[in-house]
Simulated assay, not measured.
Amino acid sequence: MRRVEHVMGFPVSVRVDDEGFPEAAVDGLFAWLHEVDARFSPFRPDSEVSRLDRGEVSEPSPALGEVLDLCEEYRVATGGAFDVRLPGRGLDPCAVVKGWSVQKGAELLAAAGARRFCLNAGGDVVAAGGPWRVGVRHPEHADQLCTVLDLTDRAVATSARYERGDHIIDGRTGRPATGLLSLTVVAPTLTEADTVATAAFALGAEGVAWAAARENCEVFAVDAGHRVLRSPGFPGKRAATQPTG
């Protein structure tokens, strides 16, 4: 079973290797992701996030409340570097919503009986069963990899400057975070991997050690000086094109 759809501004692909897996379960996965996009996108004026930000909703739904609680947890943990309520900007919880919603989607597949599957959301991956080989893009060359992972029942996410430029803001300064070129986190869930990667990137160079110190997280990063930094347990293999410095 394989399918690709464009959701939340990026391609989402799923491959399920379990024989006879029901297509209706994959339909349910993508229906959930489209629902999340409609409800939680800050770019849709009628979304719950936009209406809450304008004061038209007094209390968030339980799902959005869960997302906002995670946002606050990481704001506190980073001393304000990670912040979804930046001055002069509207509420934007996308940094949490993506990993959180895709992880929930993976749990829907598992509940439907999937045991060996790979769910890839714009390069961030949930790998169930395995092992699955996942490449991490070189931060400066789109056609090259800097490391390759063998993942089993893990998730991986990367925050970087190569797709959207300097879009991650250090909430402590209000300026773009530029201390790193890319930072990849492997964790038990994509909720954690994606949020830790973004929060660590917002911290800059100090974010590598911060992410590596979090329980069950392994880190691979390339700093602005092209130095490669990795935690001892990071499951990646060096690629021939890995940056050096």
Results as ranks from 00 to 15, higher is better:
85 R>Y: 00
87 P>D: 09
89 R>H: 15
89 R>F: 13
91 L>N: 02
92 D>H: 12
93 P>N: 13
94 C>I: 15
94 C>R: 10
94 C>V: 15
96 V>C: 13
96 V>L: 12
97 V>I: 13
97 V>W: 07
99 G>I: 04
100 W>V: 06
100 W>K: 08
101 S>P: 08
101 S>K: 10
104 K>P: 04
104 K>F: 05
104 K>D: 01
104 K>Y: 09
105 G>N: 14
105 G>W: 14
106 A>F: 06
107 E>R: 15
107 E>Y: 01
108 L>R: 15
108 L>D: 10
109 L>P: 12
109 L>D: 14
110 A>Y: 03
110 A>F: 01
110 A>R: 14
112 A>V: 02
112 A>F: 00
113 G>A: 11
114 A>C: 05
114 A>S: 07
114 A>Q: 05
114 A>E: 07
116 R>M: 06
116 R>I: 00
116 R>P: 04
116 R>V: 08
118 C>M: 14
119 L>K: 11
119 L>H: 09
119 L>V: 02
120 N>M: 08
120 N>S: 14
120 N>F: 08
121 A>R: 11
121 A>T: 02
121 A>H: 08
122 G>A: 06
123 G>K: 08
124 D>E: 14
126 V>K: 12
127 A>D: 05
131 P>F: 07
132 W>C: 06
134 V>S: 04
135 G>R: 02
136 V>I: 12
136 V>D: 03
137 R>S: 02
137 R>I: 02
139 P>A: 02
139 P>K: 00
140 E>I: 00
141 H>I: 01
143 D>P: 06
143 D>N: 12
143 D>V: 00
144 Q>H: 11
144 Q>C: 06
145 L>F: 06
145 L>C: 07
146 C>H: 14
146 C>A: 07
147 T>G: 12
147 T>N: 05
148 V>A: 14
148 V>Q: 12
149 L>T: 01
150 D>R: 15
150 D>H: 15
150 D>C: 11
151 L>D: 13
151 L>M: 10
151 L>P: 14
152 T>I: 05
152 T>Y: 13
154 R>N: 12
154 R>D: 11
155 A>M: 06
156 V>Q: 09
157 A>G: 05
157 A>I: 02
158 T>K: 04
158 T>S: 05
158 T>L: 05
159 S>H: 03
159 S>M: 03
160 A>D: 05
160 A>I: 05
161 R>Q: 14
161 R>N: 12
162 Y>W: 11
162 Y>T: 03
162 Y>F: 11
163 E>Q: 15
164 R>M: 01
164 R>F: 00
165 G>K: 03
166 D>M: 03
166 D>N: 13
168 I>A: 07
168 I>Y: 06
168 I>M: 04
170 D>Y: 06
171 G>C: 09
171 G>P: 14
172 R>T: 03
172 R>A: 02
173 T>H: 05
173 T>K: 04
174 G>R: 08
174 G>F: 09
174 G>N: 08
176 P>H: 08
176 P>L: 06
177 A>H: 03
177 A>L: 02
178 T>Y: 01
179 G>V: 07
182 S>L: 05
183 L>E: 10
186 V>F: 07
186 V>T: 03
186 V>S: 03
187 A>C: 09
187 A>P: 13
187 A>L: 10
